[in-house]
Amino acid sequence: MKISTVKELLDARVLCGEDQLGKHVYSACGCDMMSDVLAYVKDQAVLLTGLVNPQVVRTAEMMDMVCIVFVRSKQPTEAILTLARNSGIVVMATDKRLYEACGKLYYHGLQNDEMEKDG
């Protein structure tokens, strides 16, 4: 699924990385506990979370994730966005709650295939 499709499905606002909306994501992880995110490697994944601090960006970077979606209208600070820009990670914000946001992406085909790529 293209990141631009994630944006449309979640009615999200892009906060940084507008130039990378054409990139693909192959799986997603919805979680507020970063150690749980770190436990299962997924390739080119999107991270959906209600947690807002710089460790979200570092966790995504360690996992080679390409996109972060902050749910429930959470607004990251400029410092968080700067970290994400430096790491080439797309950051978006949506008004949806975590459960609904994950459900929408899953329903539209972004399922949970760990380390699977379609080319």
């Binding site: 507020d32 506990m33 970063m34 770190l38 947690l51 460790q55 966790t59």
Partner: peptide, 15 residues
């Protein structure tokens, strides 16, 4: 509240 302390740190390091 900062997203850590889930008891996964050392297990993840071993993993």
């Amino acid at each position: 509240s900062l997203g850590f302390g889930a008891g996964m740190g050392l297990p993840n390091m071993k993993r």
